[in-house]
Design a protein around this nucleic acid. Structure first.
Lengths: 225, 225
DNA sequence: TTGGCCCGTATTCCATACAATCGTCCCTGA
DNA sequence: TCAGGGACGATTGTATGGAATACGGGCCAA
């Protein structure tokens, strides 16, 4: 919830359309491969086709949808290979960002620590609120990236990462994995607080790789069935 | 000329507008901060405002222009800091890509070698064709990236890199720097041919860092004037 | 002289009408 | 029965008109 899904361009109706359609894609309400018909969405949202077209263009640029000339726009489909590519890039970019944040004296360590703690306490409850957990996790990761000092790093990662986040990764974790993931967050905070770039980078690598591993295990399981 | 500037969506007029406006920005014909008026561009290109609006939206998504609500779109401005960020990311991503290409057995080493050779021969001429050199250089870099096997890596780098390339970096090089840059290309080919990922990665790092250094020298010089 | 308000103008933003294009279905003929 | 072709329908792509909004200049008052 951190960046880039609030209005980046002006139109009121355009933004409404963009937010709404995007939400429907990410929630799974619109499944992969489904057609995004301009007039249908327009009437559904109570606006004309023009802002819908504009919103669809942005979604295509985001990589969430695919344009087929003279045919229309449909929700992008994702293969396991795509997810591998994404995690590979996250590994590279986010660990780099963590290192830079550790070197940045104005990084708000306290805020990151609070996020990590709140996430921990959520996981200790009987029925964890995975939605809230995902939201806090996004805040943690993108917040850390912002302290890397590189605006582009934030936007690039945001443009890559949006898809797999929706898959409710946390809900797939075992209890041990969940706990380890939370521990990673605290360790990252410690590393940043210590100003130790290599430590921060290494923990972030481990953190993401662990997430990738859990996701991968689930993928092969679901493919087998 | 490698990727992502050919039509990614359908419209004929839309594509014309996109290509044309984009070219005007990259050539410097439209300078930073200039307003991109819909009707003006529409009449200039002989189309209506609608495809122009769509093209502007894509340019904003590309990061080449900036949208100001209810005011219009203007050409994005670039600070030296932006260029630093971009080179930082290129360093990270392209060196990683080079390493992966070295590990990929189906990488077309011969093609890369031909590109490197042709670039070398251009630089040895009395009046090198820097435009052609830039084009071949783009082909070399994006070609190498494609052999990394990660589609996303290609598109991500393409989305970041477009701006500084236009600044005719090669024309700023000293003779020695130009020669070193060409040598780097050949060395990268050797490393990839040897299947040595670490070698390829290291040379690519050096190659980009050298380019950054030359650009930086020029920036401080032009700022002093 | 200067600060603030009001209105005119230019421009975007949204809606709607029209044109072009593609897929599908039916019909025909072998 | 099946292959090929042509017209219909649905949907995108383009053009244009009208509503909303923000800037700039001029007027008024202190």
């Amino acid at each position: 919830m951190s960046v880039r899904q609030e209005s980046q361009n002006g139109g009121l109706s355009t933004d409404l359309a963009y937010q709404s359609i995007r939400a429907q894609i990410l929630s799974g309400e619109l499944e992969a491969g489904a057609w995004l018909r301009e007039s249908e969405l327009a009437t559904q949202l109570g606006v004309s086709r023009t802002p819908v077209r504009e919103a669809l263009g942005r979604l295509v640029a985001d990589g969430l949808a695919k344009h087929e000339p003279n045919r229309g726009v449909r929700v992008e489909e994702w293969t396991p290979r795509d997810l591998d590519e994404i995690y590979d890039l996250r590994l590279l970019l986010e660990s780099h960002g963590a290192a830079m944040a550790a070197l940045n004296p104005s990084t708000d360590v306290a805020m990151l620590g609070r996020l990590a703690s709140e996430m921990s306490s959520i996981t200790e409850q009987r029925h964890p609120d995975f939605g809230r957990l995902t939201e806090l996790n996004n805040n943690f990761h993108s917040g850390l990236l912002e302290y890397s000092g590189s605006e582009r790093l934030v936007t690039v990662v945001a443009s890559i990462v949006q898809v797999p986040l929706v898959r409710q990764t946390f809900a797939r974790y075992t209890q041990a994995e969940l706990r380890r993931s939370m521990d990673h967050h605290h360790e990252i905070v410690s590393a940043v607080e210590a100003g130790d770039a290599q430590w921060a980078e290494a923990v972030m690598r481990a953190h993401l790789r662990a997430g990738w591993s859990a996701m991968h295990r689930h993928l092969v399981a679901s493919r087998a069935k």
